[in-house]
């Protein structure tokens, strides 16, 4: 992969040729009031690819993935998910949200519902599955994230790591085409980060398309197909983990890595 970068403009982070593009973001711009959070972002992701987004806090990485399922509205540019362009069209928005799963930093499990109800809520209400089917699928994914026995508990009764795994199962049960992870381990105690990362590594190996915003460099190095480094709303550098961690080109990347590693 080639890296072309100048400090003042955003780098294009195109997916490798040959793959089936599932996410295409082109010239994306977003402002919070006067503050320009995303500047000319171009990023595409192939099917079964794992893209890891890193960067200092406030660099716009979370905003970027929140734009993909329209939790934030962008002002300029084009976002296409699985061939559907994200516009003001309610139908399109709903379609894209159905096809993207999201895992949040703060888990955002619904505290008034049991684990099982948390997971089956959307399949029943949005996908219109029968309850039996939804529960069966839910059990399958709970098994997959390693906590089948917690189905009838409330989120408040689980540890942070378990909650985050439920959140992953909840997103997976909708059988999305893309999974978005927004700093999934940042709110966890150090001793349970491992269990969540393990689940994510397994997912990556199974060929699920993932965009992961994280500070876990180990994860990026191990399973990332590409690493995207963002700073001040721009993509500064893109590359394979190997390239990225051994031979970064940009000054900003180097300085960031030197602080974090």
């Amino acid at each position: 992969m080639t890296v072309t970068a100048t400090a003042s403009t955003s780098v294009r982070a195109d997916a490798p040729h040959g793959g089936q593009k599932i996410i295409e973001i082109e010239d994306l711009n977003k402002w919070f009031g006067e503050f320009h959070v995303l500047r000319d972002i171009t990023l595409s992701v192939n099917k079964a690819e794992v893209v890891v987004v890193i960067g200092p806090s406030g660099s716009g990485k979370s905003t970027l993935i929140r734009c993909i399922n329209r939790l934030e509205e962008h002002q300029q540019g084009r976002i296409v998910v699985d061939g559907v362009q994200l516009t003001d069209d309610v139908k399109k928005i709903d379609q894209i949200r159905r096809e993207t799963g999201m895992v949040f930093q703060q888990f955002n499990l619904f505290p008034h519902l049991t684990v099982m109800e948390n997971i089956t809520l959307a399949p029943i209400r949005v996908r219109r599955w029968k309850r039996s089917k939804a529960e069966e699928r839910a059990r399958y994914f709970l098994e997959k994230v390693g906590i089948p026995e917690q189905a009838n508990k409330y989120p408040g009764q689980l540890s942070g790591g378990q909650q985050q795994r439920v959140a992953i199962a909840r997103a997976l049960t909708m059988e999305p085409k893309v999974m978005l992870f927004d700093e999934p381990t940042s709110a966890l105690d150090p001793e349970v980060i491992g269990e969540v990362l393990e689940v994510m590594v397994n997912l990556a190996r199974e060929g699920i398309t993932m965009i992961v915003v994280t500070h876990e460099m180990g994860f990026a190095r191990e399973v990332g197909d590409r690493v995207v480094f963002m700073d001040r709303g721009q993509i500064v550098e893109v590359g394979t983990p190997e390239h990225f961690f051994t031979n970064p080109q940009e000054e900003r990347t180097k300085s960031f890595l030197s602080k974090i590693l």
């Binding site: 399922n69 939790l71 709903d94 949200r97 159905r98 993207t100 799963g101 999201m102 949040f104 955002n108 499990l109 619904f110 809520l121 959307a122 209400r125 949005v126 996908r127 959140a167 909840r170 997103a171 909708m174």
Partner: peptide, 9 residues
């Protein structure tokens, strides 16, 4: 947000 991300209206 989580509810919207799951596709609920």
């Amino acid at each position: 947000e989580a509810a919207r991300a799951l596709g609920l209206s």
